[in-house]
Structure formats: structure tokens, C-alpha cells
Write a protein that binds this DNA or RNA. Sequence first.
DNA 1: ACCTGAACACCGTTCAAGT
DNA 2: ACCTGAACACCGTTCAAGT
Lengths: 313, 313
Amino acid sequence: MTTDPPRPPPYLRIAAEIRDRVESGALRPGDRVPSTRAITQEWGVAMATATKALATLRQEGLVRAVPGVGTVVVERERVRSPRAPGDPMRGEPALSRRRIIGTAIELADSEGLGALSMRRVATALSTSTMALYRHVPGKAELVRLMSDAVSGEEPMGAVPADWRAGLEHAARWMWRANGRHPWLATAMASFTRPAPAPDAMAYTEWVLHALRRTGLSPFAMMHCHLTLFAYVQGLAVAADLESQARQDTGLSDEEWLARNEPQFGAIVAGGAYPLLNTLFTQDEFDLDLDTLFEFGLRLTLDGIAAMIDETSA
Amino acid sequence: MTTDPPRPPPYLRIAAEIRDRVESGALRPGDRVPSTRAITQEWGVAMATATKALATLRQEGLVRAVPGVGTVVVERERVRSPRAPGDPMRGEPALSRRRIIGTAIELADSEGLGALSMRRVATALSTSTMALYRHVPGKAELVRLMSDAVSGEEPMGAVPADWRAGLEHAARWMWRANGRHPWLATAMASFTRPAPAPDAMAYTEWVLHALRRTGLSPFAMMHCHLTLFAYVQGLAVAADLESQARQDTGLSDEEWLARNEPQFGAIVAGGAYPLLNTLFTQDEFDLDLDTLFEFGLRLTLDGIAAMIDETSA
DNA sequence: ACCTGAACACCGTTCAAGT
DNA sequence: ACCTGAACACCGTTCAAGT
């Protein structure tokens, strides 16, 4: 009795076929490769297999996930072009802390903090893993440096005279930073042990400055700041989980809901959740995190306003 | 020229010496082993080395970290005693989904979600890693099952007539759950893609019920719920990071601050952060997360109250 | 001075083989 | 039917060796 020759698993076969299309030029840099859904239909495989096939190609660096667009063939020219984010400036050494941080941010932006590894950063910089340790003490500190770096990307501007305008501005600024870098909320240091990070401290200083004429005590000012900050962080973590889920599964919110509807239906049909049921069946209801952000921002600021009124009364 | 015989790294030498004390009976089950700080003094090593030595012993299962107490020798009798959390009930199969979840929760409680691995859960249950996959599809789903399980630990009770009393109760209930299980906030599913988890849905239903007589629209009710939820989650993630930092470094908040004071001082001394400086030098100021929780809870509920007033006016 | 390769002690998960 | 062991493709980090 002879055994069959070992055949590669389906996900590797699919990855190989897509790789061929890229190498033959059928798919060119910047082009979208088949989505996970397209793969399930074209090859007749399960979603998990399709996801793994794309993950393999991402791992190879042949394609990358672009949030909101899909998975596209990497543009190799761009990676090598002068002054791409990870490239050295004139006169700068080939490898520097700045370049390492920049490359790590790019990686975390496009694939999430879970995909960030020292080995992958090193590969993207065409160097050995251990060379990185000459510039950063380890991964934990690299992540801290990353969050500090993105905190300095957009200037916060002048502090308005009106405290409410100030806090609104600061919260939206933070929300935008989290939008650009979904991993930021997860990477953020704890409140009670703020790493000595100048940019993070600048944010707190800015907010305290906005509150300085409210008549609140330093204690209340700091606690108002942290309440708003915790709210933004909590929402940002949720947004990160969502964008991560979208990338991992390749499903949009609607597709995901359609897929899970039977299970929700079964639970809700039990009659135990009448109010949730009302919301679900009322199908004008779909949740948008930006809308929710503004809703909760207003709520929190109204709460602070009530406290200020009380204090000054 | 002869080479020295290879010597074990210091952290292994220290771990071996502590192990000897346990095996000789000098340290008995339940006793505290030397803290990281004690190790740095007794052996004259750096904090990192001390931390690694304890991590090695934890890894072996010889000791475990008890939050607020220190690292103690495990009580082997207790682990084997009938009806310890991970043990089978009479008539229950040796390995079950229930037991796996229970053991995983114990592990995450005492060492954090980062220390949770399928291999370690299997070892704690005296089985092979792959036997777990007969009961749970993978690690991601195990974590989801864990968070659903702890959501059902404490009954929420009857919904009060007063919406504000209701929301306070719910928020504190959630905050307590996060206190028992610091990893909960990080593990929590995203808002827009709630996994079909009955217990998590029960929480939302409870809160919506508390708000049913406020005159708010279903949209506003759901958004009020999510605003408060995001706030609690954001604070809980910070609390988790803090308890994690306390365990990783073996430093209490005060010790940590003392250690980092020079760096903060250098940054603040630049004069760029006058308000922060005022807070830091005013040394009656120390941050307590439970105090902050109640402060922000009141603020958020005041904001919701303002919205309800407006709606009913 | 700077970088590399091999090694160590881990991961989650697949698969074929055992009882 | 249930469990195991080996293997694969990863991790972060240490250390000794290279240029």
C-alpha cells in the first residue's frame, strides 16, 4: 500500500496561486488581491482558510491590509524610495531609534499591535532582529516610544478661553489620534503610573490649563480630566477591537451581523431581552462610534458643567 | 587556555536557592517567598534579575503571585482537594469546558491575561495541551467564555424604580467584576460586535430597563448606556495595567514614584508644565482609582440627568 | 563599534498516531 | 471516543562570535 504524496494544506495552495498572479504581473502593486469572501467563493473554502491564505501573504510582506480598502499588493518601489517614513534622512545613520519607531508605527497601524514583533520590524528595515536592541531596550519600551511619538504628531494649538471649548478640542484631538492609530488606546500607559513621557504630559497640562478659570480645585480639575480621558480611552479600545475584528475576519459590520443573526435571534427569541429585541428589530438603529463619541462627549461635559455651576454658586 | 565551566545565569541561581528553601521545608505552603526588593538586597542583583527569578518559580508552578500580598508558595494540598475551583464535580467528566474555563480564570486572575496560555491551562489540569481543543475551539473563544462566565458570578438583583440608582448600581457592579478580574476589561468584546453572550446581553438589558421611564428615545437610552460603559471600561483597563505593572515590577505605587521622581523632576523642572508641577509638589495629592471611579460616575450621571431634564421639559 | 547567528524558553494550532 | 506527541510557524531576548 502506498501513501499519497503529501499535499500542501489548502490555505498554502491558495496563497501560492495568488502569489503567482502577483509574480506574473496579473496583479500589480497597489491592486487589491481577492478578499476573504471572494476567496471562499472562488476556491470553495471556509472563511478561516481564506483568512489564513491572506495572512500567509501578509506575513511574507507581499501584500498588506489597508483599512477600509482591503488587502493590496505592496508597492515595492515606494518602500525603497527616499524619505519613505522608515527611510533614513541625509546624514542619519542607517539604523536609528527614530527609524525603528517609525517602522513599528507603520506596522501597528496597518496590522495591529498583535502583529508587531521585533523580528518583523527588523525585516522591514532589512536588518537583523538583534540590531534593534542597540537602539531600544526591548519591545515594551518600543511600544511606549511609539505612543509618545504619535502624541506629538498633531499640535494641539492654543488653549481657548472657554473651558468647554477647550475640553471638546482636547477630546477630539485624542479621538483623532486614536483614529489614525487604533492601537494607541491599548498601548497607552496607566493613569497612575504615567511613564515620564513629555508628550503625554503635555496633553494633561493643556487640559488643566483649559480648566484653570473654572474655580474647580486642583483635585477636581485632575479628576475631570481623567474622567473624560477614561471615557475616550474606553471608546478607543472598543474601536480598536472592532477594526481588528474587521481585519481578522474580513467581514464588515453588516456582513458580521448577518452571519451572527441566527444566534442572536435564538437568544432574543427566548423573550428574556425585550428591550434589546426592540432595538434590534428597529432596523434604523446602527451604531456608529463617531456618533457615540460625540454623544458621550456632550454628556460628560454637561456633567462637568453641573459641577462647575455648583462650585461657583 | 581552559574555559570556565558554564555557570547558570544569576536569576536561575537565585530561583534554585529559593526552590531549595521550599523543598527543605524552610518555606512552607502559603509562606511568602522573598519579594523582588528583598532579592535585590539579599543577592545584590538588579530588579530585573529578581523579577526573572520569581517569574521562573511562578512558571514552574512552585509559587504564585497574590495581589496585595506578594509571591507565596503554592498550597499543593488545596489544589488537589475536592471542589477546588478547577476540580470536577461528582459525576462530571475529568475534563470539561466548565473546568477549563474555571482554571483559565484562576490563572488570569493571579497572573494576568498575558500569562494565560493553552499549555499552562493544560498543565494546571494535568492533561495535554491538545486535550483542551476537544472542549474549546481555541484560545480566543476561551477568553470570550471566561468573560461571559464572570459576568454571571454576581446576580445584579432587581432593577430599582429610580433610573439614577439603577445606573449607579450597574456601574458599580461592573466595576466590582473588574476588580475581581482585572483582565476583564481588556478581554471584553467590542461594542459594535457583541459576541452572542447571554450574560453580557443581560447587563445591557438591565440598564435599558433602568432607563425605560426616563422619556429618552431608544437611541438615547442605548447611547447613555454605552457612554457609561465606555467610561467604566476605560478606567478598568487602566486599573488592569496598573495591577499588571505592580506584579511585573514588584513595586508599589509609592516605590515606583520614588524611583521615577528624578526623571519627572527633570521634565517638570524645565518649567513647561507649571500646573502639573503644582499638583506634584502638593503632596496630599495621590490618585486612587476607586475615588476616581465614583467621581466620574457622578459626573456622567449628572450629564445624563441634564439630558433627561431637557427631554422631559 | 556595530551587527549577526545560534540558542533558549516560550507561544497557538494542525495532524497523524496511539489507546 | 478520547487523548497524546511531534511538528510547524511563530514569539522576546541572551550570549558569543564575527567584521
